[in-house]
C-alpha cells in the first residue's frame, strides 16, 4: 500500500474552486509550490504539460490553476478563474504547451520553468489525484516532496558540516524532523536539502539557516 493519502482531509478536501481536483486544485498546488520555491513572482513562466494534463488542460482549467498557483493563490481562492488576466496585468508572461511525450511520466505531469532576470528555476510535479501532489524534481535534483508537511528546501554548497549545522538550528528551535533528503550533483558541488518538520519552522529558524555560509537560499513550503 502506498501512503500518499494520510488522513481524512486528504480524502474529504481540498475545499477548492472547480472543476477538477487533480487538474485544477492539484495543478494550483504545484504552481504555488513552484512560486514559493522561486521565492518571488517570476517574469516568465514556461509550462510543459504531459499525459492527461496535455490533453485536457483547457477543459479542466489546468492552465488557469497553474498560473493561479504561480500568483500564490490557494486552491479555494475565487481569483483562480481570472488568473490569466491577473498574470498579464501584473507582468507575468506565461507560455503553455504539451511537452514531448514521455512514457515514464505519470499521466498528470507538468514541468514549470521560471525566470526573472538572470535567475532560472525548474520543477517537475505530478498531480496524483484528489488534489494531492508530488514534486519529483527541483532544479534538476531528484526529490520526493508532497507538500503535506512544512518543508524547508535549501540549496547549498556540498561541504562538510552543513547538514549538521542546519539540523542543530532546527533542534535548537525544538523542531522535530519527520523526513529529510539530500541530493547532490556531484562531490563537492551543489546540493539540495529537503527537511520536513512536524511543526511550522518559525521565521527566526529560517533566518538562522539562511545565514549559514554554505546556504544559498531557504524556501519554506507550508501545507496548503
Amino acid at each position: 500500500m502506498s501512503s500518499s493519502f494520510r488522513h481524512s482531509f486528504d480524502i474529504i478536501g481540498p475545499i477548492m474552486i472547480g472543476p477538477s481536483s487533480s487538474h485544477t486544485a492539484g495543478a494550483a498546488r504545484i504552481g504555488r509550490i513552484a512560486r514559493n520555491l522561486f521565492g518571488e513572482q517570476p517574469d516568465v513562466a514556461e509550462i510543459l504539460l504531459y499525459g492527461s494534463f496535455a490533453k485536457t488542460y483547457r477543459g479542466h482549467g489546468t492552465d488557469v490553476a497553474l498560473v493561479a498557483g504561480l500568483l500564490n493563490f490557494a486552491t479555494h481562492d475565487p481569483r483562480i478563474t481570472k488568473s490569466l488576466q491577473i498574470a498579464q496585468d501584473s507582468g507575468l508572461q506565461v507560455s503553455m504547451k504539451p511537452g514531448p511525450p514521455n512514457a515514464d511520466y505519470h499521466p498528470n505531469t507538468v514541468r514549470i520553468l521560471l525566470s526573472k532576470g538572470e535567475r532560472k528555476f525548474d520543477l517537475l510535479g505530478v498531480s496524483i489525484g484528489g488534489g494531492a501532489v508530488e514534486i519529483l524534481e527541483i532544479d534538476g535534483f531528484k526529490v520526493k516532496m508532497t507538500g503535506q508537511y512544512p518543508t524547508l528546501v535549501i540549496p547549498h554548497a556540498d561541504r562538510f558540516g552543513v547538514i549538521a549545522a542546519v539540523t542543530t538550528i532546527l533542534s535548537k528551535h525544538q523542531l522535530n524532523i519527520s523526513f529529510m533528503e539530500v541530493s547532490r550533483r556531484g562531490r563537492g558541488s551543489e546540493a539540495l536539502m529537503l527537511i520536513s518538520t512536524d511543526e511550522q519552522p518559525p521565521e527566526e529558524a529560517v533566518a538562522e539557516i539562511h545565514q549559514l555560509e554554505a546556504v544559498k537560499r531557504v524556501a519554506r513550503i507550508d501545507p496548503s
Binding site: 472547480g18 484528489g130 488534489g131
Partner: peptide, 21 residues
C-alpha cells in the same frame, strides 16, 4: 454543476465526483 462552473466545492474524494456525498 457548481463545480463545472468553477464554483467552490469540496473534493470528495475528487472534484469530478464531488456531488455524490
Amino acid at each position: 454543476e457548481v463545480n463545472a462552473a468553477m464554483g467552490l466545492v469540496v473534493a470528495t474524494p475528487t472534484a469530478g465526483s464531488c456531488g455524490i456525498l
